[in-house]
């Protein structure tokens, strides 16, 4: 029997972050810079529900029509963690947080500093790193 996997196709799926083929980017988008910076997404024209992604067919809460919206880059931390394993191209340690934007949805962000922050900490999205939203503790 030949050594496993050598010289034969493997089962790794296309689309995986490692060893796969590129896919359309599903992440939330940061638009503009400085005071004009905003997370862009959609908001329901009826119930005002905010969504951090685009091209959904209707409001998933009330089925109303949705329109493009710009959300604040500031908000409060719902939770955070420091990941200590390599994930895709990310080398440990790196910190992730769920950030509830002031006038918008909950988004996943990378934290500039690899440390857990208390619940409710004010955060500000300052930019992106390889397409990921990056936030730091607001002054």
């Amino acid at each position: 029997m030949s050594e496993l996997g050598v010289g034969r196709p493997t089962k790794r799926r296309p689309g995986a972050a490692v060893g796969g083929l590129p896919v359309a980017d599903p992440r939330p988008v940061l638009d503009g810079a400085g005071a004009d910076a905003a997370v862009v997404g959609l908001r329901c024209t009826q119930c005002r529900y905010p969504v951090p992604q685009r091209r959904i067919p209707w409001c998933p809460v009330c089925y109303g029509s949705v329109a493009e919206a710009r959300f604040a880059t500031t908000g409060i931390a719902w939770s955070s963690t420091v990941v200590q394993i390599a994930v895709g191209g990310r080398k440990p340690p790196f910190a992730l947080a769920y950030l509830d934007l002031d006038d918008g949805p909950r988004v996943l962000v990378h934290l500039a500093e690899p440390a857990v922050v208390p619940i409710g900490t004010r955060l500000r999205i300052t930019g992106t790193d390889d397409g990921d939203l990056v936030a730091e503790v607001a002054a």
Partner: peptide
């Protein structure tokens, strides 16, 4: 390996 087509998977969660 996180799913690359997922918004959070693509952010290495």
């Amino acid at each position: 390996v996180p799913e690359a087509t997922d918004p959070e998977g693509a952010s290495s969660l």
